[in-house]
Simulated scan of single mutants.
Amino acid sequence: MPDLPIGRARLLSYEKPYDPQPMIERLKALLKKHNESYREAALRAGLDHQAVRRILAGQRPSIPTCILLADHFGVNPNEFLELAGLPKLKIFDVQDAQTEHLPVEAIEVARDIARIKDPGIRRQVAEAIRTLLAKYFE
């Protein structure tokens, strides 16, 4: 859907089935990491007090809800948009102009990770690599 106008892409995304499980798992992990209740997270994100509960019950969040929650938790909004089955927004595509300073191996690993289509699996692979690196630097 990247070539379509965002409004059209959003409408088409609602025609596809929504699997809430990846969003629910990610949201629960962030709630645990930030030690917040559903209500606290929703209110701190600028949403109504039931917004997070509705998402955890399986309701697809809207684009503004994804952006507000991502901002609150400090993650890229495109991660939440993708988990919600909504179109990603170009404005949140972060390109690092400093890749020429990275070793070739690091760029190759990053490209391999980026090819993983499922955002949940992609995040798990990235976290596994970070865990290995943390052990290495201990």
Results as ranks from 00 to 15, higher is better:
114 A>I: 04
115 R>P: 02
123 R>C: 01
123 R>A: 09
127 E>G: 00
117 K>W: 04
98 Q>S: 14
108 E>Q: 14
124 Q>L: 14
94 V>P: 00
114 A>M: 08
92 F>M: 10
129 I>F: 10
115 R>C: 08
91 I>D: 11
94 V>M: 00
96 D>I: 06
99 T>Y: 04
114 A>L: 09
97 A>H: 03
111 R>S: 11
105 E>N: 06
128 A>P: 01
90 K>T: 03
112 D>C: 07
118 D>A: 11
97 A>P: 04
108 E>V: 14
104 V>Q: 15
128 A>L: 11
112 D>F: 01
98 Q>W: 03
103 P>V: 12
130 R>S: 08
118 D>L: 07
111 R>W: 01
113 I>F: 03
114 A>G: 12
98 Q>H: 11
130 R>M: 06
109 V>A: 12
132 L>S: 06
108 E>T: 14
121 I>V: 15
88 K>F: 00
104 V>M: 11
110 A>Y: 02
108 E>A: 14
122 R>C: 05
119 P>L: 08
118 D>N: 15
132 L>H: 03
120 G>C: 05
129 I>N: 05
118 D>G: 04
88 K>E: 13
124 Q>E: 15
127 E>W: 00
131 T>V: 01
106 A>L: 05
133 L>E: 11
125 V>Q: 07
89 L>K: 12
89 L>P: 03
133 L>V: 08
102 L>K: 09
88 K>P: 01
116 I>F: 05
105 E>C: 02
119 P>G: 07
123 R>K: 13
116 I>N: 03
